[in-house]
Each structure stands twice: as C-alpha cells, then as structure tokens.
Amino acid sequence: MKNSSQTKRIHAPRLAPQYIETIQPPLYRASTIIFENTQKVFDRHWTDRYDYSYGTHGTPTTYTLADKIAQLENGNYCLLAPSGLSAINLVNSAFLQSGDEVWVPDNIYGPGMAHLNYLKQSFGVIVRVYDPLNHHSFQPTAQTKLLWLEAAGSVTLEFPDLVNLVKKAKQHQITTVLDNTWGAGLAFNAFDFSDEHLSVDISVHALTKYPSGGGDILMGSVVTQEHKLHLKLLHMHATQGISVSGDDCAQIQRSLAHIELRYQQQSRSTQDLLHWLKQQSEFQQVLHPSNPLSAGHEFWLEVCQDQQSAGLVSVIFQEKYTLEDIRRFCDALQLFKLGFSWGGPVSLVMLYDLKGMRSLEHPHLANGFLVRFCIGLESSQDLITDIQNALQTL
C-alpha cells in the first residue's frame, strides 16, 4: 500500500533495531500501548505482574524502578505514586472506610495528618493519636484497621518503640504501615527488624528524598511483601488513576546506583555536626536518634543495628531567644538554604514552633523554638562554620 508523506511520517517505513544492551535501561514514554493482536488484548488482566495495556498501569521504565525500590526495601511488590504524600493517601484510601479507626503517632508528618482529618470530617473515619515512645498509649479497638508508624518521627525525630507497637498490632490483626522515608531501606529492614523477625505490612517511601537525591523529582512508593495486600492497593491505585512520569523514573533509576554512598556520607556528616551542636550553649536540646539524650535512643539502637541514620538533626534554642532572633539566625545562614524536604546535595534549614504541632503532652521536649537542619553533601566543617557564623547574629 502506497501511503502519503504525512502518513509515512507517523508510520515510519524503517525502524532501527530496538534492543541493545546499555548501562541504563531504555526510557519508555507511553500513554497508548500497542497490542500485537486481539488475543493479547483479551489475555491480559489487571492483576498481572506486568500489565502492559495502558500507560497508567505501567511501562518497562516504571516497572523496572518499582522492582528496584521493592528490592531496596526487601519487599516483593511496589507501586509508584506522584509524591510521598500521594503514596500515603493511597494507603489510607485503600484500607479505611466510614467508621474505621486509624492510629497515628503524635509526631506524624503534618500533611499526612491533614489528609486523615479530611477523611474524618468527610467520611467519618476515626483518627486516634498515640505516643510513639509508649506502646501502652496505643489502645486498639474492634474498629481499628490501620496503625501508622514513623521511624524517626517528623521534625522532633523521636524513634518509636517499633518492636512493641508492631507486636501489639499483630496481636489484634491490625495492618501496620511505616513511613520509611527516613530509613530509606538502608538504616534498617522494615520487613525484618528484630531478633523475632518482626515485619511491618506496608512500607511507604517518599522517593523525592534519598532515591532521587537531586532535590528535583517528586515521587512516592508503597512496598509490600504479601500479594493480597498488594492487590488491594493495586486496585485502588488503578481506580484513582495514579501514575508517574517515565522521565522521572529514569532519573531516579540513575540515582539508585549511589543512594547508599550518599546516605552513608550524610550520616557521617550529621554525626560531625551533632557532636559540635551539643557543645553550643545556645541550644537546650539537640534531637537525633543517635544522641543518648534524645527520646527513643534505645529503640534506635534496638532496630538500627549498623547505627546509620538519615541526615536530619533538630535543635531547640534557649527560651530567651525570640522568634525574631531565630528568624535572623536562619536568614544569616549561607550554605543552609531555607526549604522543605531533604536527601539532596544542598543542606536545608527550617524553623518550627511546636505549639499547635502536637496534640499530646511532650515532657521530653524543652520549650523554645525548633530549627531542623537537613544535611547535604557539603563538607561538614563548612556547615559547622556556617552555623557558627549565623549564631553571631544572636
């Protein structure tokens, strides 16, 4: 059949061979996926491990990254979402219905709590708050369907009593889900973190942080070991039309090769900074799981056998310093940039007022304004000098 030049531009008469071996796998961009014949259309099913039917379901690029994230976290199945928060919301949507109860730690990631409050107001989901340092404060009922865990907790970085909390949840047959962004699949194994081989049911990860490593990609993941749980999440994933960019997946794929090297480097730099911060009189408290004076230190030792940690450390200033003082300090920093997120090459800083951020009493925390440092890949000594110079503004 003789085609017009316009048609030939769309249906190329000659196509280079498509399969060569390269260090990075080929990048597939697709909404429509072409079926070889009608039999292929009818043979597929949405539960297939690799359902090549439409771009939202997956391409070789997205499935390759999902498999690598599952491997990183020691899971069997992985679903990708456009952000860490989207991954959190996927879990809530899949497992919570009207009248169901969900328990969350008092130091939960703020936007995650905002979504649960929306489910509470709009659909009657019951939201309970527990103290992550005291497993007795977690009191499940017959309505409890989900237990959220964060290790370490948001902003104040308490490491939870992971062992006893998961034990109690399993006794009551409650699904456990861990925000594992801090551990990144490297600090500890979420699916085998104790001598008794305890495991969470679901691990959520903001790939925006360490897997991306560049501060330029938004993505999240949900990893499971059990096929039944995966299918429940997969059905909601498809129903909500959740999908990710092939280009973004390819970028994260490249960064995964050196994620452990970056994590170890930032962990070492954080230890250098931690040692120096503890000697500065301007701070009442220096919060980090490896600090023996920080709440949850014993639980961190119990779970993180290699004593690794993400590059986050928070300080609480002496009460004599006002908000204006702390703002002046943050504005004076040169290497630390004001911004949210972490895990990238550039160090970040953010200030918080804990009043209004917690619903339970927190006697382990001093009164005063909190500043969180997110350690990048700069020289630790340069970062110390930057903070030292900024402290002069006080």
Score class of each variant (00 low, 15 high):
Y50H: 09
F42P: 01
Q284R: 07
T47H: 10
S212K: 00
P289A: 00
S203I: 01
L178I: 15
G124E: 02
I23R: 02
R328T: 08
A295C: 05
S359V: 13
L149A: 03
P292R: 06
Q24A: 15
T62C: 05
A94W: 01
W182Y: 13
P17R: 10
I126F: 08
S122P: 00
G55T: 10
N3H: 14
P111N: 08
I69F: 03
T385M: 12
F340I: 07
Q240I: 01
K320H: 13
S203D: 05
L80F: 08
G246D: 04
C374V: 11
L147P: 11
D106N: 15
L365R: 11
L333V: 07
P363Y: 05
L133N: 14
L72G: 00
D195G: 00
E101Y: 10
L354M: 15
Q97D: 14
C304D: 05
H57K: 14
W276D: 11
L96W: 04
E101Q: 14
V41Q: 02
S93C: 09
Q334R: 12
D48T: 06
N189M: 00
T7G: 00
T59I: 03
F336V: 07
L360Q: 11
V204S: 05
I202Q: 05
L277K: 11
M357P: 04
T141K: 06
H258L: 07
L354R: 15
F340G: 12
I202L: 04
L15F: 10
A250L: 05
S221I: 11
T64F: 08
Q18C: 07
S281L: 07
N117I: 03
S93W: 00
V155Q: 14
N3Y: 11
S341I: 00
S86N: 04
Q251K: 14
L147D: 10
F369E: 04
D353A: 07
E36Y: 07
F369Q: 06
K228H: 10
F159S: 09
D51H: 11
A12D: 09
W276R: 14
C78S: 04
G112F: 05
N367E: 14
I10T: 14
S199W: 02
G99E: 00
V129T: 15
S314D: 03
I252S: 01
L351E: 12
V125S: 12
L351D: 12
D216T: 02
G214A: 03
M219D: 01
F373G: 02
Y52D: 07
T175R: 12
Q225G: 06
L354I: 12
Q173N: 13
V286I: 06
F369A: 03
H136M: 06
